[in-house]
Design a protein around this nucleic acid. Structure first.
Lengths: 343, 343
DNA sequence: GAAATTTTTTCAAACGTTTGCATTCAATAT
DNA sequence: ATATTGAATGCAAACGTTTGAAAAAATTTC
């Protein structure tokens, strides 16, 4: 059987000399269909491997059961955890996820959103790209809103849109991290900050700064250096910190990668962790448990964020007329490990 | 404008008192359309945010430009790297990826494949689930083949299908790893194997065993213990190894996770790495560079595999009539780090 | 054996777009 | 004025499926 062209309902109808309607009803167990007809048609359909064309159904019902997930990257643990959460919540109820990776690029983000709308995607989960953030452009989002396609922000957001959003409590996570350092007895705490402007960077920075203030400690500008979220970007900044006249005795990295970069430099300098320098990261990525010493960090529940985002989406589509957008902020949680545990 | 229903070509036609055909042609810059008409229609379309319904086009042209990616998990570095590679190669030329995660589950795999076919996906990248492997069922794949939907196997494969496949050279990677251990001077090399039956497990095991044989070393059954690819599954096996009368002086883990699990146990026992015990993993996951000591491993080029799989797919769809299925085996590469570098 | 009823099947429209062919209308050539 | 051309537009079918309403066929009722 050279069945490269998929079998259609019409093919089956021709075979049974009946109308397509009958075949359709037979296949869907419609009660008005004769028992024998039904059996014959179903059996034949199975035999020739009939599979209904969902594309035509999408057109007819204006339902595609597909969702867009637009993220800057999928090469970090956190993002894949979020996707896994979305997947866990949404695949079982029939949704298909279209993953789009923007590489922090505005033009790509715009293109993907347009494409998702063209494909009549029923909802979009978006973590906006870094470039979009900086540029401040957002017309590409207006068309999503205008189309009434549910848009759920994940972590990175525009404040001025009326949408649901799921984020992690970066502020209090950072606050708790720094407070922990202070409790242990560290007094000169530096921060390897993320790129300026991103909510994630700024919130963590704010938690850091506010905590210092609470304990009447100076927020020293030279103790705050930008990084790019990855290991390499932490190397030089850490060197600079350690070569200061009065170097810090603890470093709070904006994420685990950065903290690990710092860890390398500190160890290379012959300083001991945590005795000489305390070190703390953010994300609780799998790697953080297995460095040496293991890294104190702040857990960021990616999987839960994904599931929560899914819940927000479902709320919106199944929504009562009194539906209100929600902003969920999931708590982050301090995970204490060896890199801060002195004495 | 309560434009919750997307604007269609018909809407625009009504507005201009012309036929849908004219609007369609105007929007597509058809030369037979009056310049003014074209401009007016295009301008109006932009104004009201018209976006063509790709679903209807898919139905008409029988092209969906969407591809299925069916993988057992997305929570490991390697899998996401593969997906990234696919994405890098295929998104720019207009394909959309539908990621399906089977959780190593046969029923889910079957369901997803059926769904992808129903959605008229134009190609499927598949890394079969563990359960499928064990059960040996593969009718769910037959229907894919029968439909002439290009099917590309990634890493895990059925030998008996006529398809293209992209895999990493696990055998020689494992061989090189063990040879390296022998060269360094380790003599009692244990293997923490993956689950039996999976190609990945068996190939790496074979590389291990063949290398030992080449150097006239015994392949001792008690030195080969199964794990489940994750950290925890390596804990007990490693304990058992170290408590033997003549314990191994080196351990080859089926992947980095397993090697890291072993590392914990070895260090907890007070043994030194690499002096007392050599340790080697597989995958070159990011984490392996940052453990202490850093982990010798075998690089597995996930991103490249993804791009290669994409290439194989494109070959098939753009294929000349003399098209032949290919099996690409990408080389793996030994990455030597501290965990094996004694003396 | 015809009317009434029930069961089963078909018709036609719809979803949004494209496209070969036919049509209309105006302009040009004769 | 009429035939010829050319430009611009419209018609209708197609993709595969579903579904309300109509039609046909079979069965029951008296």
């Amino acid at each position: 059987m050279n069945s490269s062209r998929p079998v259609t309902i019409k093919d089956i109808a021709r075979r049974f000399r009946c109308s397509p309607s009958t075949v359709s009803r037979a296949l869907n167990d419609h009660p008005a269909i004769n028992e024998d007809t039904r059996k014959n048609i179903q059996e034949y359909a199975r035999e020739v491997g009939y599979q209904r064309n969902e594309v035509s159904l999408s057109l007819l019902n204006k339902k595609t059961a597909s969702l867009g997930v637009v993220v800057p990257t999928i090469s970090n643990y956190y993002e894949t955890a979020v996707i896994e959460g979305l997947h866990t919540a949404l695949q079982p109820i029939g949704y298909t996820l279209n993953i789009c990776v923007t590489n922090e690029n505005y033009a790509l983000e715009k293109e993907y959103l347009a494409k998702l709308l063209s494909n009549r995607t029923e909802g979009i989960f978006l973590s906006v790209s870094h470039e979009t953030y900086n540029s401040g452009y957002y017309e590409h989002l207006e068309s999503v809103i205008q189309r009434k396609t549910p848009l759920i922000f994940i972590d990175r957001e525009y404040e001025d849109f009326e949408t649901s959003r799921a984020t992690v409590d970066d502020y209090h996570g950072a606050f708790a991290a720094v407070e922990h350092l202070i409790n242990i007895g560290y007094r000169h705490i530096a921060h390897l900050k993320g790129p300026n402007g991103l909510t994630v960077s700024e919130q963590r920075f704010k938690g850091y700064a506010d905590c210092l203030k609470k304990y009447d400690m100076a927020v020293r500008e030279e103790f705050i250096i930008n990084t790019n979220f990855n290991v390499e970007s932490a190397i030089l900044p850490t060197k600079r910190l350690l070569e200061m006249a009065t170097p810090p005795d603890a470093i709070f990295g904006v994420n685990d990668q950065v903290a690990i970069g710092a860890m390398r430099v500190v160890k290379a300098k012959g300083l001991r962790i945590p005795q000489d320098v305390g070190l703390i990261g953010f994300d609780n990525s799998p790697i953080s448990a297995y460095t040496f010493p293991s890294l104190t960090t702040v857990n960021r529940p990616g999987r839960k964020i994904g599931m929560e985002a899914a819940r927000l989406f479902l709320n919106q589509v199944n929504g009562a007329e009194d539906f209100k957008h929600e902003s969920t902020v999931l708590p982050s949680e301090l995970i204490i490990r060896e890199s801060t545990l002195r004495i």
